[in-house]
């Protein structure tokens, strides 16, 4: 009997066992990246930029040319690389502390300059590597070691919405938020990141994909309970639909905040009135949360 393989490890994924915690999204995402790079046949001209955080050793898992970068500086490193190697496919892999806190300036300016690299922004609403501190994206009410009583928006602010912030700029060609939740979510994540790579290869500027990803360790699941409070919040958020979804023909990312609250009224009404006022027509922003 002839056996035909129906599934195999992507070539770009190294033969290494990952250090990620059980249930972590990074492992899934690493594999998706490897699959996408194999599918597009771009392994030999792809340069990755790894952040500081749980995914710092990206180069141990992906068999590509990869540079580590200082905390938050991946956009600057990716700028340096992509400006020097115009034919290369460059991507930066950043976490929420890296991109939305210490590296906020770098990502905004790289986006504004329309740098030619893909951003994969892994948002798990917490600092994982350092032991579960509050991140800029930590949800309202979500507990962490530095907000043990839960995030209080009065003194800690609301979660940063990086997609929404970046969408105010003219340069980015694609801004999307996806989630690593369930097979459908993972498939959409894969398709969206692949699209971002295709955009970059087509010379389009600064494709940006936010990936909502679980952190089972620092969301502190309680014994005997399947989901922690943080996880429930996250799932509710990640499943929340655009409040004006029926109008989202061109697609818009989540119109709700991380805590499920609605966006401020002016933005909502602008969205209802004329979507192209909010999102530049050339930007292919997508609603892929469902």
């Amino acid at each position: 009997m002839v056996m035909t393989p129906v599934y195999k490890k992507p070539k770009t994924l190294r033969d290494a066992s990952m250090h990620f915690c059980p249930g972590c999204g990074h492992g899934i995402l690493h594999k998706l990246l490897a699959e996408i790079i194999d599918e597009l046949g771009i392994r030999e001209r792809t340069i990755g930029v790894a952040p500081v955080g749980c995914s710092v050793v990206l180069y141990d898992y992906l068999d590509l040319d990869i540079s580590e970068s200082a905390h938050g500086r991946a956009p600057a490193v990716a700028t340096g690389i992509s400006r020097c190697l115009p034919g290369a496919v460059v991507f930066a892999y950043q976490g929420d502390g890296d991109l939305a806190s210490i590296g906020t300036a770098e990502v905004i300016h790289a986006a504004n300059r329309g740098e030619h690299y893909v951003t994969v922004f892994v948002n798990n609403t917490i600092y994982g590597m350092t032991g579960g501190q509050m991140a800029p994206t930590t949800m309202v009410g979500q507990a962490s070691t530095t907000c043990p009583g839960g995030r209080d928006p009065e003194t800690m602010g609301n979660p940063m919405r990086m997609c929404e912030m970046l969408s105010a700029l003219d340069s980015p060609s694609l801004i999307a938020r996806v989630k690593l939740d369930g097979p459908a979510g993972i498939r959409k994540t894969r398709a969206t990141i692949k699209q971002a790579f295709e955009y970059q290869m087509a010379g389009k500027k600064f494709p940006f994909v936010e990936v909502l990803s679980p952190c089972p360790t620092h969301w502190k699941p309680r014994p005997g309970k399947r989901w922690s409070a943080s996880a429930r919040k996250w799932r509710r958020f990640s499943r929340s639909r655009c409040s004006v979804n029926s109008a989202c023909r061109t697609g818009i990312f989540c119109c709700r905040g991380f805590d499920g609250s609605r966006l401020p009224r002016p933005l909502r009404s602008r969205m209802k009135g004329n979507l192209t006022n909010v999102i530049p027509a050339k930007a292919g922003i997508q609603e892929v949360l469902a």
């Binding site: 500086r73 340096g80 400006r83 020097c84 770098e106 300016h109």
Partner: peptide, 26 residues
């Protein structure tokens, strides 16, 4: 050759890091 006015000193040195990583004289 490449010239970029960076958004900060911090970004500038990290762009140098990127350019150097790509094998260029940065």
């Amino acid at each position: 050759k490449v010239f970029v006015q960076a958004e900060s000193e911090v970004a500038a040195i990290n762009m140098v890091y990127g350019g150097a990583a790509a094998g260029k004289r940065a």
